[in-house]
Design a protein around this nucleic acid. Structure first.
Lengths: 336, 336
DNA sequence: CTGAAAGCGCTTACAG
DNA sequence: CTGAAAGCGCTTACAG
């Protein structure tokens, strides 16, 4: 299996040049004649040679590995998609990803030390929920990027979903379908997701000249909350013809509370694009997908391109969501 | 931030010993007097020294990093939990985890090469669905363990869920609750999960002296399939008093098809413990959780303890699931 | 354009 | 028990 260690020396011998030249030719860093480069490449191919990344890292002090510190890797819906996006981007750039899990929001000290001892080139911290955080000092190396969170106290580059745009997107989709009496069902937890989406909803309704009606219930944003909010909306109101729920799980509560209506004439859109839920509901739920994979990709791009410590400027990038249309929005003759 | 590189030399100077002694003292590999060890330790602590893992890896040719190759990291429900379990176990053992994603079941060649060039000590391959696979040759290094899959052609250690035990567990729970007319709703895809769980169901029913009735519909195992199977069961049969659905999503279909019954007197148990679904349903769904985190832990234990290539013996470990009780199983007077 | 030499930060025989 | 020396496999000034 493991071929008898083919090192740079064997390649040099095979190509009839020095190891220095092999290094130059293969890394593209030195200046080598085209002819030599080809001979070296051919020799390397023949031997199946790939430079030892450990040796390279030790010598050059660039490991080409990125640390991925994820909160609640096991259960957070964002963890997998962000990680997959980051991994893909890293692969394209020749980087590997090393992970550590932050259970219950706390990062194991020894794990962080190990990461640093591993000489990672930068670290990506991924929050389980969109919020402000206080990054542990040891991680604040000047080569860190935050995903799904930001650190108000430090100038760390962050990349988060554009919650306002997400609320707008959902609402405008409903408006385009001809709905006018649209309510927004959400939770009063004061988090960026709920306040941002509500804000986007209100803005879109305002632009359309409609009065935005928002029904907030106490969190957490589960099916029970969705049902409760729907109940409140029906009690307070002439029947709405569409609802924008804070997320897919709350939308599921809407189905439970008003199943017959949803079957017949109430349109609903959720957010989060939680596949097993959105696809299983009937009618299948239209939802705004959060840009998790893209967030992962961007995080890697920033991390890799990051100049040396303290040259980074503070900045928060907000990424839009994307609408995933399924069957829960019926179009309806516009009546104003 | 980054302290001016505190190396083993600085520690040696601080402790007034040689670097050799520092290495011996800190690694625990050499024989050092207790007094010396303490002096070294104190010096290391004072300087905040942690050995450079890259240098250590290069010299000792043990990187203390494990490769985690996961299929469909973004969407597989098992990926997160397995990864979290593996990460926790690795941390305890002083190992780090490096990940690569296998999109659509294919592993990027360059990525695998990079993994090997990274000198990972072993690799853990995690399948998105329980099945037989054919591990890419380059990964078959003699230091690989499979999770959620096995390779019939090679003697690679594998660890999978015990589907039969899972079927048994769900069924026996229903039997213990006093149910007798229990049906199993599943899919005819011939995969280990569906055939194993059905087998466990039949065995448990047999033990209880009941005739096992299994309704199979064409896959995939989505809510539509669950509803169809439920429809078939009701058509074929006097009404069952309980159903064991292949998984939580099919169970959701049962709720959709027979909502009133589920509210009033039909007990149901699912499998997979898909949180957003199981917790959102009403009544909340009792489900058998798959042992994903434990599978991850075990995989790491095997990987770390793995002797040198070709000393490994073929073996498949099957782990039981655990019942997560919620509200969908009512107990009922036993009537035989 | 090419190569001899030093060295990244450790660990590991090997002597003492 | 302790330490001087070699060396892991590369890259990187530096000469030629």
């Amino acid at each position: 299996m493991t071929r008898k260690s083919q090192g740079i020396r064997e390649v040099a011998a095979e190509a009839g040049v020095s190891v220095t030249t092999v290094s130059h030719a293969l890394s593209g860093h030195g200046v080598v004649s085209g002819e030599t480069r080809q001979r070296v490449q051919a020799a390397a191919d023949r031997l199946g040679y790939a430079p030892n990344r450990i040796a390279r890292a030790l010598r050059s002090s660039r490991s080409n590995v990125l640390a991925f510190v994820g909160e609640e890797l096991a259960t957070s819906p964002s963890a997998g998609p962000v990680l997959a996006g980051a991994q893909a981007a890293a692969a394209e750039l020749g980087f590997m990803i090393m992970i550590v899990n932050a259970q219950h929001g706390v990062i194991d000290g020894p794990q962080v030390e190990a990461l640093l001892a591993q000489q990672v080139d930068a670290t990506i911290f991924v929050a389980a929920s969109h919020r402000a955080i206080d990054l542990p000092g040891r991680l604040d190396t000047g080569r860190t990027v935050l995903v799904g969170a930001w650190d108000p106290a430090r100038g760390i580059p962050a990349i988060v979903p554009d919650e306002v745009a997400i609320g707008r997107l959902a609402t405008e989709h409903l408006l385009r379908a001809g709905h006018r009496d649209i309510v927004h069902l959400t939770v009063d937890d004061g988090m960026p997701a709920s306040v941002g989406r509500a804000e986007g909803f209100c803005a879109a309704m305002g632009d359309a000249g409609r009065h935005p009606r928002v029904f907030r219930v106490p969190g957490p944003a589960d099916a029970r909350a969705g049902a409760a909010a729907m109940r409140a909306a029906r009690a307070a109101d002439t029947a709405p013809d569409a609802v924008f729920a804070f997320d897919d799980v709350m939308a599921m509560g809407v189905y439970q509370e008003a199943g017959a209506l949803v079957q017949s004439r109430l349109s609903v859109v959720g957010a989060g694009d939680l596949r097993p839920v959105a696809e299983s509901l009937r009618p299948a739920l239209t939802s705004v997908a959060l840009p998790w994979a893209e967030m992962g990709r961007r995080a890697v791009a920033i991390a890799v391109g990051m100049p040396v410590p303290d040259a980074v400027g503070e900045s928060i990038a907000r990424l839009p969501g994307v609408l995933v249309e399924r069957a829960s929005v019926r179009s309806r003759a516009a009546t104003t």
